[in-house]
Design a binder for these strands. Structure first.
Lengths: 203, 203
DNA sequence: TTATTTTTGTATTATTCGTTACATATAATT
DNA sequence: AATTATATGTAACGAATAATACAAAAATAA
């Protein structure tokens, strides 16, 4: 049974509701998502929402954290678990294309790119979470490159952090195109080349 | 003197007002920008706005076109005018960093990335303009690569469209980071490597 | 100047926004 | 079963939203 922080039962699952809210924000943006949109998607009434999440802004910040540790995380997990580094880079990019074009909720692109980045100057605290997500992703990508360098799979001169950022930047192009409605097949065309480029030995 | 379409004088310059509106949308997004924000920044009253632009949505669509043919265009112009292709790629990326971090209005990032991409599912017509802008940019980058290939500056096997898209995708990474508040110096660090990578001969 | 047409400014429209009282319903504890 | 504490649902709050009606002002044409 679902419990609240006092150990009492609650009629709805906070995490499930949060995920629903996240998809509304993802699709409509912070300002575009009305409380009515949110409560409707979450299947609760506004007093319950305010009791559990505080207000719209706090709900939004929680949604950002939720996204960063689930959807946005999936490509990273693919990247980290695939043993072969060349395949891992490709897996990362394919996973990005996948979740930015086919989402259960119909949301396209990336929540961070198309919703949070719009609001990050207006919603207090959003910019910090955004930078945190960016730096975390850079760092996780870099860590794997460093590991492969240590294992001898990548040359000693391999600039791990630069390539990590490059890989992340290429990701941004993909999610942006996905948001604009460009179809999955078209997005996937360039991935093989991108992957090769990211791993190319420095001249 | 400024004239309207009937040849009569008008108290404000439509293009100047449109540019002001564009910066408001850029900063606050479509939903986040209130008519009060807009009229205030444009220096006009709402009846004038509605008389000249129709409504908020039409003003927004005009703002997108305005952006596509000015701010977003500047890096392309730099790319097309620099004679040396290696310098041209670098000039493109540096110009992107420049306009996405230092803007007269204080707007960060890219209007298309951080405002239009959010609204493109909600504001009718925005997604078409967004795809148009993407395809146009891809095409213009590609055209230059093709030109250099014909001139012998790039190998015959150079995949112009793929690299054009790659360059554009790298751009997206830069403007996203800029929007998140990452400073110019940090963004510029990776440009030399990115430029080299885009122009590297295919293996 | 006078008459006519267009633009501007004030003020207001109905609607929707985020948020919250308050009363009912539900579940755990005594 | 009675009590207590929490969650829910209805309904409403003031404020802000996009969009207009209407009258004053400005500018051209006669």
């Amino acid at each position: 049974m679902i419990k609240n922080k006092a150990g009492r039962p609650r009629a709805f699952d906070k995490d499930v509701a949060l995920k629903s809210a996240m998809h509304v924000f993802w699709t409509k943006g912070y300002e575009g998502a009305s409380m009515r949109d949110l409560t409707q998607a979450m299947g609760i009434n506004s007093p319950s929402l305010y009791a559990v999440f505080g207000d719209k802004r706090k709900l939004y910040l929680e949604a950002i954290n939720c996204y960063a540790s689930s959807d946005a995380c999936a490509p990273l997990v693919a990247f980290e678990t695939e043993p072969d580094i060349h395949k891992a880079v490709r897996a990362f990019l394919y996973a990005v294309v996948d979740y930015s074009t086919t989402n259960e909720s119909g949301a396209k692109g990336c929540f961070l790119s198309s919703s949070v980045s719009t609001s990050c100057g207006e919603v207090e605290g959003a910019d910090d979470l955004l930078r945190l997500a960016i730096n975390d992703t850079d760092a996780r990508l870099c860590r794997r490159f460093e590991l492969e360098r240590a294992r001898g799979e990548l040359p000693d001169s391999f600039p791990s952090m630069e390539r990590a950022k490059t890989l992340f930047d290429l990701r941004q192009g993909l999610v942006f195109r996905a948001r604009a409605g460009i179809e999955q097949a078209s997005l996937s065309e360039n991935i093989e080349f991108s992957a090769k480029m990211v791993l190319a030995a420095p001249e």
